[in-house]
Design a binder for these strands. Structure first.
Length: 265
DNA sequence: CGTGTTTGACCTGCGC
DNA sequence: GCGCAGGTCAAACACG
């Protein structure tokens, strides 16, 4: 996976008016054009400063993504051994665990999960993902803080792993079908393996509730499949498709512009 | 008293 | 069909 992907995000949320484009034109004009007056230059300089700052942050983000990518590759190598535990001779497991067809991309999972051909035929699994979380190895609690509220409904010691597996249901919404299984990695007791099944039918809890460990240290892995699009593209795409993010950014930018116009008038 | 956890019993699917 | 093992249920229990 190449990391030379441009992280410049098209934040245009209104294609008809396309304010970002007009802003760029103005930037180019101002940056190469003649200075009009010192007072009028101030907002321009301010905006250029802002632009440089954003470029700097952009660069930092790319560096961060490179680090994350490295960690991701390390984890993929390190925990590929965990697949052994999933090849039980008993119940077939969902494609997350042993199906080569499994690709989780934008919420799309392999068809064998949707068909209900395996597993419980009563409910179809709409989405399955696997998450590794590094915790204190002395921590015996099988808790993955992911911002959602979970109710434990069972615990079982499995054959291939001395660590018990805990079963949770999402209790944030009464009818939410999402379940998760949490078990320590057989190779590394300091790593919890959480398998999420299903899709939340309620809104995601506020970001404040999402702990640091998930926001910075978790790698989500769709096992045994190569990820065909880069993480950078995914993240950029996620951000640009997030209405609240683009709206907040647009509000901030337009707010700045309006402030300067008012100052000039 | 309400809510969440624990844990043994039970159910279900798969391999032999 | 049987046995094994994963998954779920529900009564008992703990805690605030």
């Amino acid at each position: 996976m190449s990391m030379d992907t441009n992280l410049d995000i098209d934040l245009n949320i209104n294609p008809e008016q396309n304010p970002s484009k007009t802003m760029n034109v103005e930037f180019e004009k101002e940056s190469v054009g003649e200075s009009k007056s010192s007072t009028k230059d101030e907002p321009v300089h301010f905006l250029i400063q802002q632009l440089n700052r954003m470029k700097f942050e952009n660069k930092k983000l790319i560096e961060l993504l490179n680090i994350l990518q490295g960690n991701y590759n390390d984890l993929m190598q390190k925990y590929s051994g965990d697949e052994v535990l999933l090849k039980s001779r008993k119940r077939k497991v969902h494609c997350t665990e042993n199906c080569d067809n499994f690709v989780e991309k934008n919420g799309i999972t392999c068809s064998c999960c949707h068909e209900g051909s395996i597993g419980t035929p009563k409910e179809s699994v709409s989405n399955v993902s696997k998450v590794y979380v590094r915790v204190d190895s002395s921590d015996m609690s099988l808790v993955v803080k992911d911002g959602y509220q979970w109710r434990k409904y069972g615990q079982k010691v499995t054959r291939d792993n001395p660590s018990p597996r805990a079963y949770y249901k999402c209790s944030l919404a009464p009818a939410c079908p999402v379940k998760k299984k949490v078990q320590k990695s057989v190779n590394d007791p300091s790593v919890l393996v959480a398998i999420y099944e299903g899709k939340h039918n309620h809104k995601i809890p506020s970001e404040d509730e999402i702990p640091i460990e998930l926001s910075k240290g978790v790698t989500e892995i769709s096992s045994s499949s190569s990820i065909s699009i880069s993480m950078v593209d995914q993240m950029a795409s996620t951000l640009t498709r997030n209405p609240s993010f683009t709206a907040a950014l647009a509000a901030a930018i337009t707010g700045r512009i309006l402030d300067h116009e008012i100052e000039e008038n």
